[in-house]
Design a protein around this nucleic acid. Structure first.
Length: 482
RNA sequence: GGCGAAGUGGCCGAGUGGUUAGGCAGAGGUCUGCAAAACCUUCUACAGCGGUUCGAGUCCGCUCUUCGCCUCCA
């Protein structure tokens, strides 16, 4: 069985094999840190998180680099507009570095809650100015870049194949730069900036051979990707909206210098929409994750994201989130039941589920199908547990091993124990366990005596605090609602 | 205008030629003191029109509609 990945460059699914056996080099465009993360970030980074996890499960050592863009890029391409991070710094009455640091921490905070694994390397653009300057110098030397008044531009005409990723190869046909041309130093409207001379009062600036200024938008990814992963990498991921111009520019910068393919597999994830319209900061319809987490378990959000394919748009609505919540709860309930119910003699064959799960994940990381396998498994487990012979020790272990691998390690939507954590926490869990056992005993007695007023009171009051009681054939069980 | 993606049942969301995706919601039943959960059964589909084929949601063409990119954006 082999892994197939949809390559945006070829627009087909291709069999994946890493350039160097056993090792995958992977770069994913990180956030620009000038605001809190929103649901769109969640979709993107949860998707790539599962991709990394699955590659690792498949036996690869994945070197995962995800940058932090902490140089403010302009809000506009017309050689004007404002640096976003500076703008935010002005609004918050502080300096750009604090803005960048603050929102970087905020970003990781949210990603941690979503169980997104940290990248192996998270390079910041501001920490790699020398590398970016060196890349520009190489481009100048090879005739792909030119300097005008302290600004350096990449000459698009000098690189054959510019736009091959987005399919936007006919530069004349999309003269979006016409309005730019009048006031810019560019020789060609399609050319893009590699280095910009800083205006008076621009807070983030560095010395370079051309001017005191700051790097262009697309440069950091090429420079840092090549620095940490080499001139040709296996996978480069990012949002679809970055295909053009960002990724096409990255390709141009890198390949113009190395003459080698920059990226073997381009992967692009789709947008989150609200009522069919893209969610975006500039559109002011974005759903802030910290706000969302107040109402909803982050893992429900993770589950919600994974219920659609990464290349599909995901439409957000409260009812959709609620459906995910109920669905995930069902899976967790099965997991709990499996652990708590007494053993029997029933034999369960996990292999078909395992097989289908792997098949789904190997097919361009088809998480919705993988999840559907878990639902079908859940149904089968419940049915088995309902039978008098229940499940044998060995079968239960098989299932738990699979759930652990598929549900926890790969998709990371099921946790070993929702309440487990640090040691102190575990101690308190034990105590709650003891208290709950007493309460359930009292309730069982009340029910035995047909004192349903009391038994219902116990159940209802516990429910008010978020603890749900369910009467099963083997007695009552309890769980904390998420 | 150019480039690209997509239109699936009440909602979300898979499916690149031939047997049920899956989830949520709805209906009926089993179980239960009641409830919840679980299990069983069940109703709504493939935008439209042509074409290819023994057979199409799935391929081809046209039409309509939606979305993304062409300004920063996951």
């Amino acid at each position: 069985m082999s892994l197939f990945i949809y390559n945006s460059l070829s627009r087909t699914k291709e069999k994946f094999e890493s350039l160097h056996p056993g090792i995958v080099s992977m770069y994913v465009c990180g956030p620009t840190v000038y605001g809190h993360a929103h649901l769109g970030h969640a979709k993107s980074y949860v998707s790539f998180d599962v991709i990394v996890r699955w590659l690792r499960q498949s036996g690869y050592r994945v070197k995962y680099v995800q940058n932090i863009t902490d140089v403010g890029h302009l809000t506009d391409d017309a050689d004007e507009g404002e640096d976003k991070i500076m703008k935010q710094a002005r609004l918050e009455k502080t300096d750009p570095m604090e803005i960048a640091q603050f929102y970087t921490r905020s970003f990781y905070e949210d990603m941690d809650k979503l169980e997104v694994l940290r990248p192996n390397i998270a390079p910041a653009a501001t920490a790699h100015i020398p590398e970016q300057i060196a890349l520009i110098a190489r481009l100048m030397k090879t005739g792909h870049a030119y300097e005008v008044n302290g600004n350096v531009y990449f000459s698009v005409k000098s690189f054959e194949g510019y736009g091959k990723l987005s399919g936007r190869t006919d530069q004349e046909a999309h003269q979006s730069g016409i309005r730019v041309g009048i006031r810019s130093d560019k020789k060609d409207p399609s050319d893009f900036a590699l280095w910009k001379k800083a205006d008076e009062g621009h807070l983030m600036q560095w010395n370079s051979p051309w001017s005191t200024g700051y790097p262009g938008w697309h440069l950091e990814c090429s420079a840092m990707s090549m620095k940490y992963l080499g001139e040709t990498i296996d996978i480069h991921g990012g949002g679809m909206e970055n295909k053009f111009p960002h990724h096409d520019c990255e390709i141009a910068q890198a390949e113009a210098v190395t003459g080698k393919p920059y990226v073997r597999f381009w992967m692009h994830n789709n947008m989150v929409t609200i009522n069919g319209i893209k969610m975006g900061k500039s559109l002011k319809n974005s759903i802030n994750l910290k706000e969302l987490f107040k109402e909803t378990d982050p893992l429900v959000i993770r589950f919600f994201v994974l219920q659609s394919h990464y290349r599909s748009q995901l439409d957000y609505s409260e009812t959709a989130i609620k459906a995910s919540k109920t669905g995930l709860e069902k899976l967790r309930e099965t997991q709990r039941r499996l652990k708590e119910q007494p053993l029997g003699t029933g034999v369960f064959d996990i292999a078909p589920f395992q097989h289908r799960f792997t098949e789904a994940m190997d097919d361009d990381f088809n998480t919705p199908v993988a999840i559907s396998v878990l639902f079908e498994l859940s149904k089968a487990i419940n049915a088995a547990l309902d039978r008098t012979e229940a499940l044998s020790e060995a079968s239960r272990q098989d299932i738990e091993a699979f759930l652990d691998k598929a549900g926890r390690e790969t998709l990371c939507i099921l946790k070993q124990d929702d309440l487990s954590g640090d040691r102190d926490n575990r101690e308190s869990v034990k105590k709650i366990d003891a208290v709950m056992t007493i309460l359930l005993e009292l309730r069982a007695e009340a029910r035995k005596n047909k004192d349903f007023v009391l038994s219902d009171k116990i159940r209802d009051r516990l429910l008010e605090t978020g603890i749900e009681i369910k009467d099963t054939r083997e007695g009552a069980s309890w769980s904390v609602q998420s």
